[in-house]
Design a protein around this nucleic acid. Structure first.
Length: 329
DNA sequence: TATGTATGGTAAC
DNA sequence: TTACCCTACATAT
């Protein structure tokens, strides 16, 4: 389910709790038994996130590439460095208490930062990291019992990471990792932002494909998914159907810069917050309720927040595209 | 209990 | 373009 921000968040979690430690690897579900056997006993040395993919390097030049697709998730339990607000899947916010169970009524300040005093500190917790981070009921058993179809379990002495439902979970050689990343468009959190802008602009400028489709193409730009696509186009007041080469260059550059701005906000807040210029009360409401978080995404049939025109929805390449025909004429 | 939907991507037509 | 994969959850029955 995650767009780029979630993958960067998950990579950060790996950096804190898995990298630098030897792992026991297994595939309880049975679909990654050989790969797990290769990883088993190795030390995790480095994690990288590019676009919607995560690369975890183990000693001996063994790389694990994971793509969560729409349904994948990593469940962390044991010692977990909780650094962020934990939101339940229905959009309700919560945070974990000392026992790791979810507590309602988070304390958010106007900047959207939570008030956890132990930011970054390991604690007993159980969280599911997918598009959002969800608090799970903590298990006292160690290692935690396997629940459901776990493709890959990585276990350090103190932290357990369970992978479920990924689109891709494969081992790669260093050359293969380089090749995979080379096919991906610029990622504002990986590439130099100025270089990325040039690459993105040059690509879009020569494409006859609609800009609404180009933004979803990971070879054109990394990490944008269906939510950010709709929101970036609205923020640029850009019609999704305009061929890339016909979009004014300044608009194209503006979309890149906007993405470079929104992505880190998503990483820090854990939310696809695309209405960032809100007063504190509106911001609080947007953080708390998913339906109040976006300009046009998931708002088909509702009035545009800016002009009141009915927001439209159409299928584009099998995905739902939301836009305001007046603001984005 | 069944069904529909979802923030993604690939491969086959 | 369509089929298909992978899983969880909300909603309908």
């Amino acid at each position: 389910m995650p767009e780029g921000h979630s993958v960067h968040r998950i990579a950060r979690q790996f950096d804190r709790n898995i990298v630098g430690r030897a792992v026991a690897a297994s595939s309880p579900q049975g679909r990654f038994v050989e790969g797990a056997a290769v990883i088993d006993g190795r030390e995790a040395l480095e994690v990288r996130a590019v676009a919607k993919q995560m690369f975890l390097r183990f000693d001996g030049d063994v790389w694990l590439r994971v793509h969560l697709g729409m349904y994948g998730a990593w469940d962390f339990s044991g010692e977990v460095s909780v650094d962020a607000t934990i939101a339940s899947s229905n959009g309700r916010m919560g945070q974990t208490n000392q026992r790791g169970t979810v507590v309602d009524d988070p304390i958010l300040d106007a900047a959207g930062e939570n008030s956890l005093s132990s930011i970054g500190a390991p604690r007993r917790a159980r969280v599911r990291m997918s598009e959002q981070t969800t608090g799970l009921e903590e298990q006292t058993e160690w290692p935690p019992p396997v629940v459901g179809a776990v493709r890959l379990r990585l276990l350090t002495e103190s932290t357990c990471a369970d992978l479920r439902g990924p689109t891709a979970c494969v081992l790669q050689t260093p050359d293969e990792v380089v090749a995979t990343i080379a096919k991906l468009g610029p990622d504002p959190l990986v590439d130099d932002v100025t270089d990325g802008e040039e690459r993105f602009t040059a690509t879009v400028k020569k494409k006859p494909t609609a800009i609404g489709l180009l933004l979803m193409d990971q070879a054109v730009v990394s990490g944008i998914g269906n939510v950010y696509r709709a929101e970036l186009l609205f923020r640029a007041r850009q019609n999704p159907h305009t061929p890339g080469r016909d979009v004014p260059e300044e608009v194209v550059r503006g979309i890149w810069r906007d993405w470079a701005r929104l992505l880190p906000i998503g990483v820090e807040t854990g939310q696809m917050m695309t209405m960032d210029d809100l007063d504190p009360e509106a911001y609080r409401r947007a953080m708390a309720h998913r339906d109040d978080r976006h300009w046009v995404y998931h708002r088909a049939g509702l009035p545009c927040r800016v002009c009141g025109t009915t927001v439209l929805m159409e299928e584009a390449a099998g995905r739902k595209l939301y836009w305001c025909p007046n603001c984005q004429a």
